[in-house]
Design a protein around this nucleic acid. Sequence first.
DNA 1: AAGAGAGACAACCGCCTCAAG
DNA 2: ACTTGAGGCGGTTGTCTCTCT
Length: 246
Amino acid sequence: MEGVPLGVRKGAWTEEEDNLLKKCIETNGEGKWHQVPFKAGLNRCRKSCRLRWLNYLRPNIKRGSFGVDEVDLIVRLHKLLGNRQVRPSWSLIAGRLPGRTANDVKNYWNTHLQKKLIPQIEVVKVKTPRMMETKAIRPRPRTFSKNLIWLKSKTTAIANIETRNNLFKQLSPPLSPPRDDGISWWENMFVDLEINKEITLSIDGSNEEKWHEKETQGILAIGDSSVQGESDWNDIFIDKMDLWDL
DNA sequence: AAGAGAGACAACCGCCTCAAG
DNA sequence: ACTTGAGGCGGTTGTCTCTCT
């Protein structure tokens, strides 16, 4: 790790260290990770503290095996956001799975899904020679200067977001029953899809138009076996039913 | 019972981006 | 314009546990 001070403790965390870190974050809040080791009285580097908190100690972290719907979502989002040209955005995917961390998702993908899915994707690639390249520009976390104009006009920005969300609600049919936690995560995903419109697919012009159509219809349209044959686009996705056989 | 191999997951590493100076 | 340091990311490794022979 770059900048790791000499003599800093490494390896598995002890219960005592966990308690110190938890106490420190509860008192001072998240962030300012460079101060955390000192404030908590830990002989660990800032990155180690941050990782331990985010992946293990943070409240509401869901442990245990992944559910079928979670696996389904991981596969779909990995197709959408990640491919061999760019890094898959595990944090973005994890953001759609309440209680799951990016590390969890990444580990699950590497140990459970990668070996099973990659061969299928390779077959699909051979079937679709027209798909030359998929380019995704994933959003990265940003911190903004206080002087940014659009931050100053907060009211306008919020109004725009509300208008956009209402539009998506109108466009999107009810796709899944509400979850127990009351969070309509599919709905949120549509909103994010709109935000991430930079996700472009360098396919030919006719398919590009279809992509935009599908984008507004929602992610469930992608790979839906009922529209197989409508365009070559569908061929690159594994049929939803195949997922249950994993 | 014991050793080998596979699987699962926690943790580390190196890199990138950005704000601040 | 350049440098520095913090925050954050994905890739990789280390270690523990389980299963099989």
